[in-house]
Design a protein around this nucleic acid. Structure first.
Ligand code: MN
Ligand code: MN
Ligand code: ZN
Ligand code: ZN
Lengths: 146, 146
DNA sequence: AGCCAACAATTGACTCAGTCTAATATTTTT
DNA sequence: AAAAATATTAGACTGAGTCAATTGTTGGCT
């Protein structure tokens, strides 16, 4: 999802703005970052941006499938530019540290439910929960950080 | 998790109150209900209860493992009294309708990540996402309801 | 039965993450 | 360069939940 971000935006019928470019770059250099983390990153680069511009842009980019949003329990939403595959996530219950886990199957839905209750299932989302090496060491308690 | 709720509370070192009993019964008769739904249910039965009492009780019951909390993206937390197994969930993207999906393996974590990054993984949470029969029919758009 | 300490419920303010709206500014088309 | 389309901003607002102080209830112990 790197390369010509400008191109990418245009291809999806979006206007090219400094804010959007900066947001794309921020997501790319901080995978699984929260909106607030990304706001800080973007401000460090382009000086200033409104909260709403960031939320709005993240929304439109997710909608256009240029970004993916994950919403793990106890955390604000996180964003990544690794889209179009069906990877999963490994999350530390204490500090929220998040890793990508490659899907063994590849395509979604990568697991089948025994009983589908008539649903049209399009995804099997898998979240591996645990404790990261550093939180294990320090005996950190369960207070996931945003 | 039915039977003598009073007993159950005592066994876990919790005082028995009308509120707690009513909340337990409400969760049991509305699996995967949200806090606000449960508040309504409880009020219909015992007349009145504070929001805080419900949130507080749900918290302590989850902590003591008498209830389980699930937090699907785009929905407030949901509660159920089916604990101690490792079942999964099937959720409608449009209306939030939620079903239990039995785990094929049984014990958690029921899936192994290819790379564990040194984590101590205790759970593999699986959420099957899709569209329920009724939302399929009416072509409902993706606006999960609380 | 009555007392008391521990525990629970209520109230109301507050937080966090995010949305809505109207006004302004920037991009893109013509 | 002007107009139309789209994006950004500021600020009020919402939903879901928490925090802290006060009041009320429960249950163990004389
Ligand atoms: Mn990822
Ligand atoms: Mn369930
Ligand atoms: Zn950690
Ligand atoms: Zn549905």
């Amino acid at each position: 999802m790197q390369g010509d971000a400008e191109q990418l935006l245009r291809e999806h019928g979006l206007q090219v703005t400094a804010q959007r470019l900066a947001i794309l770059r921020a997501v790319s250099s901080r995978p699984h970052g929260t909106a607030d983390e990304l706001i800080d990153d973007v401000r460090a680069v382009i000086g200033s941006i409104s909260r709403q511009a960031v939320f709005g842009t993240l929304n439109v980019l997710v909608e256009k499938n240029l970004l993916r949003r994950i919403q793990p329990a106890g955390s604000p939403a996180r964003y990544e530019d690794r889209v179009g595959d069906n990877h999963h996530h490994l999350i530390c219950r204490s500090c929220g540290l998040t890793f990508d886990i490659d899907c063994i199957v590849g395509a979604a839905p990568c697991l089948v439910a025994e009983e589908d209750h008539g649903f049209e299932i399009d995804e099997a989302e898998v979240l591996f929960w645990g404790r990261c090496p550093s939180c294990k060491r320090t005996g950190e308690t369960d207070t996931p950080v945003g």
